[in-house]
Design a protein around this nucleic acid. Structure first.
Length: 419
RNA sequence: CGGGGAGUGGCGCAGUCUGGUAGCGCACGCGGUUUGGGACCGCGGGGUCGCAGGUUCGAAUCCUGUCUCCCCGACCA
């Protein structure tokens, strides 16, 4: 994309109503727009990041097999939630509610477990229909008492939620373990593999424990105790001697750290199936409740955590896999003899599959460099009188201190593209 | 929801205490000089000071109410 064609702009002014680093930088760089507290619009560059993250998740989810993507509704009816006793504001304090013209109450989806599970009754009747696993990317609406931390905790946010329907505890556990592994691959691919850990947390009403995926960051809201050797952690909420013994963890080996919950997985057993009436006929003709699991990844929160984790004093720094573009092509000047090779390189890289943000604007070099840094694009390539005279290109990685002078072949090699 | 802070051109702020119809920086438009780390000079456009009511000859400024935002806490499938 040519920057001259992009409507967003960067700004030197730090937004006054944000203290979270992720929100400050994302707004300054033009990735997001704040509509109100905890509610953000995703502009072209921000949307590109969201889509990249979604695509990585999608690939890992589809890779699990028998896992299908769908999308549920935002408007939900009251009756289903009453079935599991979660309609009452006393029970769930994040509800947004409204009503139809005829007075019928409706809720705005803050979760979709009830809806999906109820729908699955239409399709699950036999052990032959199991396992069945479905997921979606949904905008969740939650009336949080207080939004904070920029896009890491909003009232409206994108979440990937996956629900598994299994025939038995064994079948469920196998899938649960497979999802755990897939989640770790997701966090690895978005660049947070080194700082994200499976964390034992409270299991709620259905099982003793659930598991969270916690990313170490000062911007997080949770406190975890991490065993770096074993690469597992315990959430502060279940940090007791009894639990540590159960998990075979040694207190003296644990590090207390702040972290952000980027994912979580729950086993529900058959409780919810029984509440909602989801049964199947087993091989022996007996009717049994389906074993349920629920697995979430906060997509936009994850984007905020990535922004927060990698940012430096010059701006954002995106890992290649999630960056809105791979290359920031800065053309220093607009003389015809400069425009031609720059346009050609832009075409060439794009055709070769490298996304390019082409800075073809009529602004001074310093402004282009500053924007390249603020936007956090992994590679900056400069085409200027100097590079033209030397018959090469100047390439600098976002995190590198110095640039390299490379010919076209080496540029392509450095970027890992063919063409 | 409790405590604290703040709402003034698109953005960041000063002005409020000591009422006299609004100013700076960024951004924007025009002209000129510039061109490898957010250029400079000159000229120019844009706000009636969150909203409502009140006091006053006169309110961004004083009073009352209200809405919103930020921070700390509580809360958090």
């Amino acid at each position: 994309m040519r920057l001259s064609q992009l409507f967003t702009k960067t700004t030197k002014n730090v937004p006054a109503d944000e203290t979270a680093r992720n929100a400050q930088l994302l707004i300054q760089a033009g990735y997001i727009h704040k509509e109100m507290a905890g509610v953000y619009a995703y502009l072209p560059l921000g949307l590109a990041v969201v889509e990249n993250i979604k695509q990585i998740i999608r690939e890992e989810m589809n890779g699990l097999g028998s896992t299908n993507e769908l999308i549920m509704t935002s408007l939900q009816r009251k009756e289903l939630w009453e079935t599991t006793d979660r309609w009452d504001d006393e029970k769930v304090d994040v509800w947004f509610k409204s009503e139809l013209k005829n007075g019928t109450p409706v809720g705005f989806g803050w979760s979709h477990e009830e809806q999906i599970t109820n729908m699955m009754k239409n399709y699950i009747a036999s052990y032959r229909d199991l396992p069945a696993n479905v997921y979606q990317f949904q905008t969740k609406l939650r009336n949080e008492l207080r939004a904070k931390s920029g896009i890491m905790r909003g009232r409206e946010f994108v979440m990937k939620d996956l629900y598994s329907y299994s025939r038995s505890d064994e079948q469920h556990q196998a899938y649960y373990d497979a999802v755990t592994a897939a989640y770790l691959r997701v966090f690895d691919r978005v660049g947070l593999g080194d700082v994200t850990f499976v964390t034992t947390a409270s299991g709620g009403a259905f099982t003793q424990f659930s598991h969270e995926f916690q990313t170490i960051t000062e911007a997080g809201e949770d406190v975890i105790y991490l065993d770096r050797q074993k690469k597992i952690a315990v959430n502060e909420e279940v940090y007791t001697d009894e639990v540590l013994a159960q998990l075979d963890l040694d207190k003296s080996q644990l590090e207390k750290l702040k972290a952000a919950e980027v994912g979580n997985i729950f086993s529900f057993g058959t409780t919810k199936s029984e509440q909602l009436g989801l049964y199947f006929t087993d091989e022996d003709g007996s009717e049994r409740p389906v074993v349920l699991g629920s697995y979430g990844i906060g997509v936009t929160r994850l984007m905020g955590v990535i922004a927060e984790h990698f940012a430096d004093n010059r701006g954002l720094v995106w890992p290649e896999n999630v960056a809105p573009a791979k290359v920031y092509l800065a053309r220093l000047g607009d003389a015809p003899e400069l425009v031609k090779p720059a346009d050609e390189l832009y075409e060439r890289l794009t055709v070769a599959g490298a996304e390019v943000l082409y800075d073809d604007r009529d602004v001074r070099p310093g402004a282009k460099f500053a924007d390249a840094d603020l936007l956090g694009i992994p590679y900056r390539i400069v085409v200027s009188d100097k590079t033209l005279a030397a018959n090469n290109y100047e390439v600098k990685a976002r995190q590198a201190d110095t640039a390299q002078q490379l010919n076209l072949d080496d540029v392509m090699k450095t970027l890992g593209v063919i063409g």
